[in-house]
Amino acid sequence: MGWNRWEVDGECGKVKGDRGRVEGRRWRLVAPVCRRDARAPGEQKGGLVAGKLWGLKALRISRRSNPSPIVLSSWFSMPLLELKNVHTYYGSIHALKGISLSVEEGEIVTLIGSNGAGKSTTLRTISGLLKPRQGEVLFRGERIDHLPPHKIVEMGVIQSPEGRRIFPRLTVRENLEVGAFLRNDKAEIARDMERVFHLFPRLYERLNQRGGTLSGGEQQMLAIGRALMGRPRVLLLDEPSMGLAPVLVEQIFSIIGDINAQGTTILLVEQNALMALAIAHRGYVLQTGEIVLADTANALRENKLVQHAYLGIG
């Protein structure tokens, strides 16, 4: 397993807002730092390794040779994705009552809750399918809640929606191609498709089959693969376990863990709290539109309420 690391050279004095390009992917400075020998606190699970800075600009780009999107990180833990006091309505129904949460780069954050708690509503608000009446949705510090869905996708916030929603009359290949709709780099797209097939070999077997003929589990794989094709900066997964047999669920979650290990930030919405908390770093518990608990996954697993209500223990 080789690691390739780049360090962006430059002098102290680069300011916030500076832009550049690496490997066809644009980057933008979100927080400048000029320090010597700084070190990030500890190693994070999944392999983002803090390293040394030598009076350089604050950005550090690391890339693995394994398929993964390029991840930009910064020392200042500005959350990659943040919701601040979001209120969303369906007509007159108050679905989200002041949600605040954040997702740091490289994490898996999970949002658990029972049916109708507002989990999917949260993801749909983030993706722009719903507009919050109050509050803000921020991506990399910028407000995105007023943008149309396709612009939000352009920024790298990509969702695998509830119920899979793969295109039934498009083939597996075409579904994946649509996932890469906004991209133009044919070679890279091809390579990403290969990576998806490495993750989900079953999909390769069904390459030219129509999406509607796939089994539930295969459709879920396709949905996730399709989302990956857009090289998301943050991947939103809406109930990937829904309607799947337990064996498949384990498979899918294992793969989700792999995807994160390769550097993708994930916000996972799940009813299956057991599996979700098993792979997540942190979690939020949502009840009737409000966040009632927010903690690390480990802490949540020990939490009595969570155990009683969602884990079936006690």
Binding site: G128, P148, H150, P161, R165, R169, V178, F181, G230
Partner: peptide, 14 residues
């Protein structure tokens, strides 16, 4: 074709 088959999902593809 994507828009024809599932409009919200198509917008989620960008």
């Amino acid at each position: 074709r994507a828009v024809a088959q599932d409009r919200p999902a198509a917008s989620l593809m960008g």
